[in-house]
Simulated scan of single mutants.
Amino acid sequence: MTRRGSADWGLPSTPRPAAVDVLIPTRNRPAELAVTLAGLAAQDGPDFNVTISDQSTHVPSWNHPAAEAMVRVLEAQGHRVRLLRHLPARGLAEQRHFLLENAAAPAVLFLDDDVWLEPGMLAGLAGALASSGAGFVGAAVQGLSYLPDSRPDEEAPFELWDTGKVEPERIRRGEPGFERWTLHNAANLAHVASRLGLPAGEWQLYKVAWVGACVLYNRTALLDCGGFGFWDQLPPGHAGEDVAAQWRVMERYGGAGLVPSGAVHLESPTTVTDRTADAAEILLGGSGTAAGGGQDVHPPHNQ
Results as ranks from 00 to 15, higher is better:
R96V: 02
E169F: 11
V166G: 04
G135T: 03
D242I: 01
W247N: 04
F158H: 09
V249D: 06
W203T: 14
Y217E: 13
D232G: 08
L40I: 13
W62S: 11
T51G: 11
E68C: 09
S261T: 08
L11I: 05
L23G: 04
G174F: 07
L147S: 02
E241W: 00
L205G: 11
V59R: 13
G78Y: 13
A42C: 15
R170H: 08
W203V: 15
Q246A: 00
L222S: 00
A18S: 12
R16K: 10
L216H: 06
G255L: 03
G227H: 03
L283N: 06
W247I: 00
G138Q: 03
T26F: 04
C225A: 12
G135V: 01
P300S: 05
V59G: 13
P148N: 05
V137C: 04
L92F: 01
V115A: 00
H184E: 13
T26C: 09
A69N: 13
A38S: 14
A31R: 14
G177I: 07
L129A: 02
W231C: 04
A290N: 12
A130I: 04
Q204C: 12
N188F: 09
A134N: 00
H265M: 01
F98V: 00
G45D: 15
E241G: 04
Y253R: 04
T289R: 14
P65R: 12
R173K: 15
E154R: 15
G138R: 03
A103S: 10
N302T: 14
W231N: 05
R4Y: 06
S61P: 12
T289C: 06
E175K: 11
L23W: 02
F48Q: 15
R85G: 10
V259C: 06
K207V: 05
P119L: 07
W161F: 14
W231H: 08
L100G: 00
P88N: 07
R90E: 07
L223K: 06
S56D: 15
A280E: 07
L92A: 05
G10F: 01
D8E: 15
F158C: 06
A277I: 02
G240N: 00
T2V: 12
A123E: 08
R27G: 07
H64N: 14
L189Y: 08
E251C: 04
P30M: 10
Q95G: 07
D153H: 09
W210R: 10
E118V: 00
W247L: 00
A31N: 12
A41F: 09
D21E: 07
G39C: 13
M70L: 14
R29S: 13
S268P: 02
G135R: 03
P25L: 03
S53N: 07
L83C: 11
R172A: 12
H298K: 09
A69K: 15
A291T: 08
L189C: 09
T14M: 12
P269K: 09
S287A: 12
R219I: 02
E155M: 15
